[in-house]
Design a protein around this nucleic acid. Structure first.
Lengths: 230, 230
DNA sequence: CAGTGGTCTAGACCACTCG
DNA sequence: GAGTGGTCTAGACCACTGG
């Protein structure tokens, strides 16, 4: 598969992160980039659109593509991101403990066999997050303690070859449940940040429901958002 | 300005919301849409890309564009959205009270004259949100109590002709400050959801800093997110 | 196989910015 | 006016889906 514009995106984004293109300056013009990368202008524009969506640049008509200051974004948590990917950015001060792993008959969109997985996430020795997942057994036939401890997403994407595509998420604040109190290190006044999400595969089938329950004092959600045109 | 693909996006999105195109079915093919709208395929594809980004459809190679079920999304709060726009969706059970409005010398990116605006948002008679805004006086020379009560964004976009473009946001949980306790209707155990955001104009200049402090029991954040390709 | 979406091209015209 | 990005086109080739 050809992915010229993805390659161009990758190179430009790396150069911005490396400081080759400085924040506040403009990128070379689309015309110039087209010559440099031996591509048509529309192809360059697809790469620039991605840069814009990911917060690397701001396009201004008549001026050019201004490089933005990415350093403000500590870790991009928007999009669908996993604890495993997050823990890599935090260094290896994290640990996952599987406390429940069972196949049941249940409902996830349609009725069928599903996996129930409960995991406690440790950060710096404290129990911070309780993840309760339901996976469709149709899409994920096998699950082990080892896979659950490592990264289920990694297994799904790299071993099973499935492609995770999009998610609906909801974030609300709740009082700690009895389960939260048992499995998380909570102080007296702690509340729980609950992220409920439905995750879909490339063919738009629902394959996962997650309830990610975070100790509120350790919770942080960072987002880069563009204004929706009316 | 020509905006053919925006018009096509608008019509298709309206038809999906109206149920003319049912969830689970596919849209007409790109080729067919190109004929229908008298447009080239690339133009159709731009419209479909927008639909995809906004959660209306899922594209599957070789199959088509599958219409998704939008009804799950109660109100899209992702992107940069204002209380005023939100209140329109809640009906007119909302009220804004301006408790502070002053011009000062301060810092917003660079040093200069800035506006400080503090507003309490009432929903169904309860004081739920405390918004603390800082605006650059260079971009927003005039601000009145009336404008602040109605919608500053509306004033900025429609009266001043400025275009709000993107924002960095951060969401964290905090204990109520003294100010929170004075201006919000809080129960004993309430914590505060704090949304800090930096908002930028089209030319990438920082023009606003906002701290939006929500009573946690009334807080809900809903998002549609696509998985970021590595 | 036909039909679908994914990518790329070369060129055109327009709107905007800045000197 | 020269240079920039915004939009649109007509056609091409590829990869994937399904019967």
């Amino acid at each position: 598969m050809k992915r010229k514009f993805q390659d161009i995106y990758k190179q430009l984004s790396e150069r911005i992160e490396a400081g080759t293109y400085q924040a506040g300056t403009t990128l070379p013009s689309e015309h110039q980039l087209a010559i440099t990368y031996n591509a048509s202008r529309e192809t360059i524009r697809k790469a620039l659109k991605m840069l814009s969506e990911h917060g690397y640049i701001q396009k201004v008509q008549g001026k050019g593509s201004i490089v933005l200051d990415m350093s403000r974004i500590n870790f991009p948590f928007s999009g669908v991101t996993t604890f495993q990917e997050l823990s890599q950015k935090l260094g290896s001060r994290t640990k996952t403990e599987v406390i429940h792993l069972k196949q049941e008959f249940g409902q996830l969109g349609e009725e069928g066999i599903v996996w129930h997985v409960h995991r406690v996430r440790h950060i710096d020795g404290e129990r911070i997050i309780l993840d309760k997942d339901i996976f469709s057994a149709q899409d994920v036939p096998h699950l082990t303690k080892e896979i659950s401890e490592k990264s289920i997403y990694d297994y799904i994407e790299n071993e099973l070859g499935l492609t995770i595509s999009f998610a609906h998420k909801e974030i609300v604040i709740e009082e700690p449940s009895e389960e939260d109190q048992n499995y998380l290190d909570l102080a007296e006044n702690h509340v729980i940040v609950v992220i409920r999400s439905y995750t879909y595969l490339e063919d738009a089938t629902l394959f996962q429901y997650t309830e990610s329950r975070h100790r509120s004092d350790k919770f942080r959600f960072v987002d880069f958002a563009r204004r929706v045109k009316k």
